[in-house]
Every structure is written in structure tokens, then in C-alpha cells.
Amino acid sequence: MVTSTTLNDINSSLAALERTSNELSSGKTILEPSDNPYGASRVIDLQSQLDGLSSYATNAQEGISWENTASSAMSNMGNVLQSVRGLLVQASSGTYSQSDRESIATEVEQLTEAVKQDADTQYAGQYVFSGTKTTTAPYEPGSEDAYQGDTGTVTRAVGPGLSVNVSTDISSLLGNGQGSGDGKLLDTLRTISEHLRGGSAEDVSALNSTDLKNLEASIDTLSQLQATAGSATDQLQTAVSRIEGLQSSITAALSNTDDADIAQTSIEYSNEQAAYSAALRAGASIVQESLLQFLQ
């Protein structure tokens, strides 16, 4: 009886010691769901939330890179428009000869192509200004000026039910070219070079009035587009820092649920080790004791 009780006690001490040693070596308190069933399901839930957040963080970073690409293309366009504006002001002054205007026209045509090329900017193989037709270039260089993309929006999910539109509707700036007569940038640029080459007094005066006015309207539209893109970048950056905050709080929650408190576990471990060796020692001495020893 004493033997079996002692053996039970030694076994349970050893089991406790093993358990604590596992906790120490793995650093986890939940090694199996039965250790803490609610905790285990909570770990699954929290881990899924963490993975979700890192997906959202990736999406937001992707969105920021996309917007950076679009913004730098638009700021190139802005530089081009300022150059065209300068050229326009020079050409409309009376001191320029027709041949001067012809060469300015050539320069404007080259700049027009540059604008179209900027519109064809790609991020990771996707045209950023084509709406959702990301595999189609929005404008075909060298040929007609019709917009090939659509007005669909590309979004990046940055939270549950929260997504940021990263598309910039470049057709609202560039339009569909001279053929459409929509008064947008490509129409304006083509008209400017036509007026430059035309050389009549009406053409020259148009350069200084309607053309300049249309060009300035386009410059305004461009700044609006840039502002929209900038605010999308801001939203994405806010999302990134919000996600980082959530990540650290969920990581803390996960650690509270699942991580072993090393200090506490170490103390438990040494207590249990002491208890185990005491049980062994007691077993070794108690079980040997019997009346037999004292009989001669």
C-alpha cells in the first residue's frame, strides 16, 4: 500500500515535471487543444487575424508603390505641361517667325508623345492609368489619341470592408484626342501644334487665348488628379500605421494566451524538480523501512 501510494506520487511528480519542461522548451503553454480548449481556439482566431493584418499591410504597401508610380508619372506630365505653356507664351509673341513656330510645333508634338508615354507607365507589369484594363496601354504611342482603358477602379483592401481606390482616371485629363473635340489635354496639344503650323494671324492669336486657357485648365485638372492620388497615398499610409498598431496589440494578446511566462515557469520547474527528488528520496527510504530490520 505504501509502495503503490509512493509510486503514484513519484509518477505524478514526474508528469508535472515533464509538462513544465515541455512548456519551458517550447515557450508555449498551449501544446495541445486540451491544455486550454478556449485558448486554443483563440490562438487560431488571433493567428488568423495577424495573418490577415499582414496581408492588409502588404496590400497597403503595394497600393503606396502603385500610387508613387502614378504620382511620379503625373509630375513628369506636369513638367511637360509647364514646358508647353512656356513655349506657347514665347510662340504667341510677335517676334517669332513662322519657321520658329514650326520648330516649336515639332517640340510640342514630341512633348505630346512624352505625355502619352507617361500615361503608359506600368507598375509590376500593370498599366496604372488604364482603369481595370491593366494589361492594355491607355494610349498607343504614335497613333491616334483615343483612350484605350476604362473607367473601372482598382482598389486595395486595407482592412475588413475598407478599401482604397488607387486608380487615377487619366482620361479626364488627356481625353480622346483631337478627333473627339473634347477640349481635353491631347485635343489641346494637337490643336496647339496645328495653330503653330498654321501661321495665320487667327492661329497665332488663338495660341495666346483659347489654347493657353485650355492648357491652363488641363494643368488644373492635373493638380486635382495629383491631389486625389496624394490623398489615396495618405489613406494607405494611415492604414499601414493603423495595421502596425493592431499587429502589436494582437501579438500581445496572442502572447498572453499562448506564451509561457518564462520566469514563472522556471520557478515552477525548480519547485517540481525539488518535489520530484524529495518524492524519490522518500520512496527510497520509506519503502525500505519495515519491522524486519529491527528483529534479530
Binding site: 495541445e32 487543444p33 486540451s34 491544455d35 486550454n36 480548449p37 478556449y38 486554443a40 481556439s41 483563440r42 487560431i44 482566431d45
Partner: peptide, 11 residues
């Protein structure tokens, strides 16, 4: 997750 909780509670 609730299945895991069920399994864990059972054990």
C-alpha cells in the same frame, strides 16, 4: 476553431 475547442474540451 470551435471544432478545435470541442476536441480540446472533450479530451
Amino acid at each position: 476553431a470551435s471544432l478545435i475547442e470541442q476536441v480540446g474540451s472533450g479530451v
